[in-house]
Design a protein around this nucleic acid. Structure first.
Lengths: 373, 373
DNA sequence: CTGAAAGCGCTTACAG
DNA sequence: CTGAAAGCGCTTACAG
């Protein structure tokens, strides 16, 4: 009583379909692989039989026989940090749409030798790889991938003035960090401090570079950036240090986790946000708008980035299918309430009129929550 | 110049190993499958050759040939919500330790017919399934799994007085919710309200049942629970409603996301947390201790639960391997600062002495952050 | 305890 | 455009 083709016999094979359709199993193979060398009527008949029998090609057999790539394994240092989880979801959705399988393997805190083993172990014979190389572990994993394995990397940015070794996708974080910094300056802050995520490969993170560029363009000598962590814990500790310096009135944080920790530190040090110190984050995690105060941050669509990576992988593989959407998503400054004019008051009417509000600034949910502070 | 066996020829097969070791390929098969029917010396020799050649069994071939289960696919409605992501990490880690592959497939918001197709599509020929059935989508997916597929479910709890259809694992959320409610009552609150996560299968969520049980035991008529969401958005809306009622002084929330939204709503309504209203969450997401105020909540170790599920799967499958750790993790009340005595003041010395502090109460990070509110 | 046989479900060439 | 052959890398029985 379960409806459609659910009382399934052992599962139809390609030969079952061939027999039922009165063709050879090779012809069935051609149909499911979208070979052009099948006549219209034959194709129709086979397709009908496939539907009727509920036939589904056996991925293991296809892989074994040397068929085209049908599955992707995502390599990443973790699954629960927002950017990683969202990217994973994007890849999953994209693979599902075209019938690919998706695997996942964590690769964290490994010595180079162990990493090589881990990466080797993660490679399925006929499989492809998407490596989330935002952090050191991911970057190392990427370096360990044998050249013949179809691979696309999700990165922070290509090294300055170079083309990435592997096909890669990234969000323009440089521009986004620059814009966020400019926003703070336009608010009237004399300078902007930066709590940076760790270095990527051997270069500084693009978020840091964008911050630097904005200060430089404004003729401001950049304060020393604080480098180092991804977590709220780290942001809290680093924030405690910054809080001691009364000249700190604006802080761009490398991500929202750091921003959350930093806001806590400021509060604890008796410095109001944004009354005394403005804080801007990066990523726009779903919780950000519920922080206290709601966090002004740079939204990054990692899910879309995940889809872009998979699209690149399809394009790259021998598959004749391609899917649209190879353009990486744009970052977007989301203005909420954690950034405002410096305590001395705005030097003009700047603060009120949302300075530097380009087309990528979204005020949609600005007034969503009001804090009672 | 890359060190160990990295300049790999096409990848060694079982026959390459057999040839090099001077045995038949079946013997190699026996060795890698840990069959007892191999003499000590033969096994040693084969093992040595395997190491030397860097042989790694082809998972697709093993699956095709009808070997034991070597990979697991996790089915879940999403990847980015904390509990789901953490559980996924637990499964990944456990699979990796024993050389299993891990796949992931999202199954959300599908009609029963589409869900059936989606689940069928996710099943690899020789694969097993772990279904995260915390929510409706997951529960539906679980129902759609053909009986012959090795499957373990992660659930909220078995239906009252029944044994789950499938091997399952869960955390005792009933007891945890009861304890959290008792904690609030002991703090002096006349009653406790509840913002519940959605119903599970056709029964109320155990978190709600535990809350109810605590009130009942205390002889308190339970206020109407507010049922319905998982998100901060929902918690915010529901919190706004509760805030209107001056008799509300304590709210147990179905998860931390809801608690975050509810705290925002209270603040917006001019009701201080915990001065006017105490809030307790559920899950202990990593951000919880950085909320403002730091959130008192019930910690659940979903990662450990993921490992338990995989252990059960191993036990269940024809594999002769088992791994320890079939005991689900215990929930734990983490006391921070979002809950305190009711505004009228504590009716006795209760509030100060951390009432009902059983061995599962952890005050370790209680003083981690102080809000300036 | 060990090897020779047959086959898992598919795919590539190779013939027509 | 279509079919008969051979094989992907492994595993089950089946013999010894």
């Amino acid at each position: 009583m379960r409806g459609n083709n659910c009382d399934r016999s052992p599962a139809a094979s390609i030969r079952d379909v061939a027999r039922a359709a009165g063709v050879s199993h090779q012809t069935v193979s051609r149909v499911i692989n979208e070979s052009p060398n099948v006549s219209g009527p034959t194709r129709e008949a086979v397709l009908a039989t496939i539907a009727q029998l509920g036939f589904r090609p056996n991925r293991a057999a296809r892989a074994l026989a040397g068929g085209p790539v049908q599955s992707v394994t995502v390599l990443a240092s973790n699954t629960s940090r927002y950017g990683f989880a969202a990217a994973l979801e994007g890849v999953e959705e994209a693979t599902r749409e075209v019938g690919f399988g998706m695997g996942f393997r964590a690769v964290d805190a490994l010595s180079p030798a162990d990493m090589r083993d881990a990466v080797e172990a993660a490679i399925e014979p006929a499989g492809a790889l998407i490596v989330i190389a935002f952090d050191t572990a991911g970057a190392l994993a990427l370096e360990c991938v044998p050249p013949e394995v179809p691979t696309v990397a999700m990165i922070q940015a290509p090294a300055a003035g170079t083309v990435p070794i592997r096909p890669s996708a990234w969000i323009d974080e440089f521009a986004a960090a620059k814009e966020a910094t400019e926003y703070l300056l336009a608010l009237g802050h004399k300078t902007v401090h930066h709590l940076a995520i760790p270095s990527w490969f051997s270069a500084p993170p693009p978020r840091l570079e964008g911050w630097l560029a904005a200060l430089k363009e404004a003729g401001i000598k950049a304060p020393k950036a604080v480098l180092g962590g991804w977590t709220s814990d780290w942001g809290y500790e680093a924030g405690l240090q910054l809080a001691k310096d009364p000249s700190v009135t604006a802080v761009l944080c490398g991500n929202d986790d750091i921003a959350l920790g930093a806001m806590g530190a400021m509060r604890e040090a008796g410095r109001g946000v944004p009354a005394d110190v403005s804080i801007i984050g990066f990523d726009d995690i779903p919780y950000a708008r519920f922080f206290s105060p709601p966090l002004t941050t740079v939204r990054q669509d990692f899910k879309a980035l995940g889809k872009v990576c998979f699209a690149k992988l399809l394009e790259l593989s021998n598959s004749n299918r391609t899917i649209p959407g190879l353009e990486p998503p744009q970052a977007q400054l989301i203005i909420r309430e954690s950034a405002g004019p410096p305590p001395e008051g705005p030097p003009g009417a700047h603060a009120k009129s949302s300075p530097n509000a380009g087309p990528t600034i979204d005020r949609a949910d600005t007034t969503r929550l009001n804090t009672s502070d």
